[in-house]
Amino acid sequence: MKLFQVRKGQFVYYKNELHKVYTINPLAKKSVHMYRIKDMEQVTTKAEDITLHRPSHMDAFMFRGQWYTIREDLEPEVGGHILVTKPDPEPMSHYGLNEFEKVEQIEGRTVVTKRQNPIKRKEFVVLREGREPESRNIAYQDTSIVSEEQINEDARLAARLSRTQEIQPNIGDIYLNLHDGGRSMVVAVVGDDVWLGHGEKLKIEDLLDADHWTLVYVNTEFVL
């Protein structure tokens, strides 16, 4: 389905690969800002160049190098992941369409996530780790045109991203905020504290939390 009115959070295909829209700048020629779900690589394009995909039961895709399968028939578990497909947030909550969240508590038919969002059962589907045998591979719009070289690269992606996450933050490194799409440069590191270019101060362990931030640029010229 071609899109001419794009909504933040939508899953879309661009150049045959699954992406997620994180912001829209209507004044720009390429107004749609997205990241590729499998590795968080950012791209900008026009609405007419993308195709909508609505995630559904037994869809399987790679998120940050790890395969997940959407299961509408399973209940959430503490420590597991969910995908918000029908967001209806409370006034103080911070989540939207197709948000990836990690379950921290279960309170009846509501889960409380690691970001302290209470999310009702009707709002989300469960993400089961791994690609199940009868699932549909939605990482690519047309799997028949994916090269063997690309398949092999995808197989190596998880290990590469795992190594990246082990890198300690250094001045000049750039991190992507997975929830608002913003990029921030590390401008100071003192002890366990990190200062980002926009003024935010974080603990190193918070910046390395893969549910919130991902490293998109390593400054190899400055190593503490």
Rank of each mutant, 00 (worst) to 15 (best):
D88Y: 08
E148A: 11
I82D: 04
T143Q: 09
Q141N: 10
E75D: 13
P55V: 08
I119K: 02
D154P: 01
I106N: 02
Q66W: 09
F63C: 03
I138E: 06
H94P: 01
E132W: 07
R71S: 09
F61Y: 11
E75N: 12
T69Q: 06
F100Y: 11
E107N: 10
R156I: 07
T85L: 11
E134M: 02
N98R: 06
N137T: 06
E123N: 09
R160F: 12
I138G: 08
K86E: 14
D142G: 07
D142K: 07
P89V: 04
P76D: 08
D73H: 09
Y68L: 05
D73E: 13
P133V: 01
E90F: 10
M92A: 13
R64L: 13
D88T: 08
E72M: 03
R64D: 15
A60L: 03
K86I: 02
N98T: 07
T69Y: 02
P76I: 08
I138W: 01
E149L: 12
Q116L: 05
Q116K: 03
V78G: 04
P91E: 10
V146E: 14
R54V: 14
A159Y: 14
E101C: 05
Q150D: 14
Y68P: 00
P55Q: 03
A60M: 00
E77K: 10
G65N: 01
I70R: 00
E104W: 12
P118A: 10
Q66E: 15
Q141M: 10
V78S: 08
V111G: 00
L52S: 13
P55S: 07
S93K: 00
E48G: 03
H81E: 14
H81M: 12
E149P: 05
F63P: 00
R54M: 13
L161W: 08
M92G: 07
A155Q: 14
H94A: 10
R121Q: 10
V112L: 07
R54T: 15
I145V: 15
R136S: 11
I70Y: 03
H53F: 02
R160L: 14
A47E: 15
N117K: 00
T143S: 13
E104S: 09
E134D: 14
I151L: 15
K114G: 01
R131M: 13
N117M: 00
F100H: 10
A159Q: 15
Q66T: 14
T113H: 02
P89G: 02
L127Y: 01
G79V: 06
I151D: 13
K46P: 02
L52A: 12
V111C: 00
D73P: 02
D142I: 03
P76C: 14
I151S: 13
E148W: 04
V111R: 01
S162M: 13
R156E: 15
R160C: 09
V78C: 10
D73K: 09
M62A: 05
A60I: 01
F100N: 08
M92H: 09
L52Q: 09
R160E: 15
R136A: 10
